[in-house]
Amino acid sequence: MALTRFGYASLQVMDVDAAARHYVDIVGLRETDRVDGKVYLQAKDNQDHHCIILNPSDSAGLESIGFKVNDPADLDNAAAAAEAAGANVTRIAANEIAGQGEGVQITLPSTHLLTLYYHADKIGYACGMENPDPVGSTETGGKVNHLDHCLISAENPAEVTEFLVKVLDFGQSERAMDPGGNMMISFLFCGNTMHDLALGPGPNGHLHHLAFMVDDRGDVVRGVDLLKEKGVPTFDYGLSRHGIGGVQTVYFHDPSGNRNEFFSGAYVTPGIPDRVPPITWTMDHLTRGAFYYENAVPETFFDETT
């Protein structure tokens, strides 16, 4: 069968406890496990064991990203297809990543590690799974429902896009092209949302940002208020809207410098590639595409990766 959704991001952080406090108190995740010095966290409206793994390290960055498949046989099939396409593939045993079944780890052309796995231990929604009050009263931090997507940087976004479309059946919803006709930013989906995985220009192997979804534009506004009140560093423009995708957004950083995003919006894609021609942004419109109100793209927007 196929990929279902973006499952987790495994991050390198310089101070695990400070990072855990950030992801609980600011982002609003639940800490779900601590194993071998690693901290596992999950958002309130996702029933799996984790969506974030914090790894102690001497630098910030992305250790790996995980996507789920809906058939155990997909693991072997994806491994064979990735190897046939020239990628390195390794195996991960069950519980090598806590709360997760066996997996395969594919090295993308951009050197990022992409883990595929079928099983995740179930912890349920924060509100509970039986006759729940749908909105919890004890939440801290942002009103985050789930980890939604990540943007990673690559020297050649087109090459990675081609790999993901051909090998893993991703579709493309939107893209930005430079004047030379090269794909500069690529928004890819494996479910029916606008993007699960996006690629932007920059060093191979780096993280641009991880995005957490909130229900309402008002929740993004209150999120910015919270970030400012708590002294969390945000991107220069604070609250904005991406013209690309038409979503409300704010960027901020965890204590190690990994970039996060609160965003809200509704966008449905057909769930299969090539059904709808992608939206194409050209350079003369990219300022509006990146920051709709400000109509400008500061250089730090692409340069700040971890």
Partner: peptide
């Protein structure tokens, strides 16, 4: 293609 989204994909 090794993996493929199949069956009903949307309303």
């Amino acid at each position: 293609m090794s993996l493929k989204h199949r069956g009903i994909v949307q309303l």
